[in-house]
Design a protein around this nucleic acid. Sequence first.
DNA 1: CTAATACTTGGAGTGGACTCCAAGTCAAGG
DNA 2: CCTTGACTTGGAGTCCACTCCAAGTATTAG
Lengths: 130, 130
Amino acid sequence: MNISEVSGKFGLTPDTLRYYEKIGLIPPVNRTAGGVRAYSEHDLNWIDFVMCMRNAGLSIEVLQNYLKLFEQGDSSLQERKEILIEQRQVLAEKIRALQDTVERLDHKIEGYNGQLLEAEHELQNKMVKK
Amino acid sequence: MNISEVSGKFGLTPDTLRYYEKIGLIPPVNRTAGGVRAYSEHDLNWIDFVMCMRNAGLSIEVLQNYLKLFEQGDSSLQERKEILIEQRQVLAEKIRALQDTVERLDHKIEGYNGQLLEAEHELQNKMVKK
DNA sequence: CTAATACTTGGAGTGGACTCCAAGTCAAGG
DNA sequence: CCTTGACTTGGAGTCCACTCCAAGTATTAG
């Protein structure tokens, strides 16, 4: 798979894909004889993982570190696992905060329903008076 | 309440508070004779609301728009409510995405548990052979 | 009354994460 | 063989949301 195919598949621009590789968010992609990137299944998995984590708000730094450890092989298994556990906690906390915010919005929306109802009644009163 | 008190209360720098006012994220704050900001209860409520929404990821633009409508009075009730409902949907969707990501992390963490166990067994095998 | 502190404004600078560009290389269709 | 279009690199530019600064004014403790 070449870069524009991958770009289409994931909705990332070729620039972003090259950028991710350059800064070490995804492993170096193998090239054809001519130096053109040929993405493997393994590469696609990484891209998918990284996009998922980026979308969830993980920083580039954390993911760079994770890849670096991955490339060090089995000796980093424990450390990698700990990173994932830590980030999992962060996300769980984020979910809780978002749920609170949704509740707050719900209250506010309820308040608007009340106000709109009031406004409607007022309108009816006026019409009755007329 | 003056700006540094508010700053302390919310963990925002005075700069950020002034910035939020300047760009219309919170209503203009009343001033003392000397031109010093004196934050009212009303202002504090707005700041709290805005921070909550910013933390949840709402853009400054959406909140500017919401304040603008608020300042137009009751005629914008319906429109404001719709903004809140829309943003509520966005957050609900975000929560769902985060939950999926947490699940994915859980699977990955489980995978690491397996690998670490394997590595441990291997180690034991070696020791037995010795 | 004065020194120190906190406030004001407008504008420049920063950091993260892209995003775009210039200049050059390479491969495939006509 | 030549043109077209995708690829390469390194580096500059952009956008968002602050964050900091300079220069000046106001308030407060002593």
